[in-house]
Design a protein around this nucleic acid. Sequence first.
DNA 1: TAAGTCCTATACTCGCGAGTAAACAGCTGT
DNA 2: ACAGCTGTTTACTCGCGAGTATAGGACTTA
Lengths: 221, 221
Amino acid sequence: MTTGATVKRATEVSPWPKPEQRQRDRASKREAVLLRAVEFFNEKGFHATSLEDVAVSLHVTKPTIYHYFANKDEILFACVQRGLEEIRQAAEAAEQAGGNGLQRLHALLIDYAMMMSDGFGACVGRTPDHALSPESLSRIKALKRDTDVIVRRVIEAGMEDGSIAVADVRLTTFTALGALNWISRWYDPAGPLSKREIAEHSVDMLIGGLAARSHKVAEGE
Amino acid sequence: MTTGATVKRATEVSPWPKPEQRQRDRASKREAVLLRAVEFFNEKGFHATSLEDVAVSLHVTKPTIYHYFANKDEILFACVQRGLEEIRQAAEAAEQAGGNGLQRLHALLIDYAMMMSDGFGACVGRTPDHALSPESLSRIKALKRDTDVIVRRVIEAGMEDGSIAVADVRLTTFTALGALNWISRWYDPAGPLSKREIAEHSVDMLIGGLAARSHKVAEGE
DNA sequence: TAAGTCCTATACTCGCGAGTAAACAGCTGT
DNA sequence: ACAGCTGTTTACTCGCGAGTATAGGACTTA
């Protein structure tokens, strides 16, 4: 309060670390906690992971973690939020990209599937609603809706340009994303298939369907 | 040991309950615990459900539950096992039914999707691996494999008779069942769509694909 | 040197929920 | 009347993990 408004100077160099640097440190430590926590959550599950686990694996003690996060729920929220942020950015990029609706949806789903394999994206797929506090849950649901909206827009664009044909956009979105979300439940990095292979294969199946082209669907029966 | 071999009599009526009846009581109480437990698990999640919750809602106390089950893990195991049993029976019935591979797969997936909406089936979809003890998990995995094998057989039959065309049977199974498993995560009985509507819609999408028939897949690009 | 602040550790509290010990009621068969 | 079995209760133990009180070290600013 005693110092006046900041002023433009000839040089910004100074032997003293800038407060901005202090912030950076704090942010990077927060980040480290998040990265380690999401590993544990994905591996052992949220409930089976104690903050003690996370702390020890970072060579600190539990209160240090509480210096960066108010409580365990906030950590889980931050992980899921981060995952949804990554997904939303990928979805927006795919929507802006060129091509018809189907091509853009293809790109979107591939990115989505790859993100489900590990990290924050997998945390989105693996975190059940009841693991989050009611407040966090409602915020997460809002973020999920954002992604859904983008996906639906792309599908609707594809229906208009004739490249996509589905009966119900909402339900189709749930089914397609559900299939990809499930990857987070079984993908094993040590397995024979790479993230990319799984993503391409799954998405091809969702787009092309199971039926041979001549058979359409079992109607009339 | 004192009484000899049982003898055919003119009547079986008797004022005393048969030992068989006692067994029935025990079995039906075990069943009641399971039915109530799976409701809680599906609603609040396994970890958030205490056996106290289950006991109180059945108008008994916690030790009574331990009179029928050794521990909480055994209850969860029994729920998931039951769900997988239901699924396996439906899958076998669909496999035995008439029609080509695609028609049988269609019937199988419809049944599967409906089961994911509630009860023991939903518990299968909602229970993550790490909620089970290692021993229970390996038994559950074996049961899941049984179902997978049936599904794959039907898909392979469909490929041979030309009604189904997919690149990788194993991965296709995971993707299709994953899409349906996901129903257990979002289905709301109070919502606008019935179990049947959701099942039929989801399965139609998996079989027919998202792409309009003329568009196949975005290849060449 | 002294006050202030940021970060981290030691050493707790506290509640919850899984699981148990032990007693007791009721019914069965001797 | 009594021994025994089944099912149930009351009244616990016990450990774990979330979260906290508090102190101390390091570095900053005056």
